[in-house]
């Protein structure tokens, strides 16, 4: 299947943005002894995957959008 031009354009822009921003991040240093809060369960972007997956599954089946949280699949269950 042919991928539309806007998709390629967006992929390129996303890659370029990350590549351009990565060097800027090298000057940001949170030392290991300062990382206790960042390692706390409440500061994880994935949250509690076991608890949040069913809510995300319900929302995806009731809205026309997708993405921004994960790419794993596994059936429909969406009548």
């Amino acid at each position: 299947m042919r991928i539309s031009r806007p998709l390629w354009k967006t992929l390129f822009l996303a890659g370029f943005t990350i590549a351009a921003a990565t060097p800027c991040t090298s000057c940001v240093t949170v030392r290991p002894q300062e990382r206790a809060v960042l390692a706390d369960p409440t500061m994880q972007f994935e949250g509690d995957p076991q608890a949040s997956a069913p809510l995300n599954h319900a929302i995806e089946n009731r809205e026309g959008s997708y993405g921004g949280s994960g790419v794993s699949g596994g059936g429909c269950g969406c009548n």
């Binding site: 943005t17 949170v30 990382r35």
Partner: peptide
């Protein structure tokens, strides 16, 4: 047939602030 691709960049900025940027594409 479903193809999904995702890239993410997570960044710790200070001991109490972190950010994440995610791009997802699916065909």
């Amino acid at each position: 047939a479903i193809d999904g691709l995702q890239g993410s960049w997570s960044q710790s900025w200070t001991p109490t602030i972190a950010t994440q940027l995610i791009y997802t594409a699916q065909i």
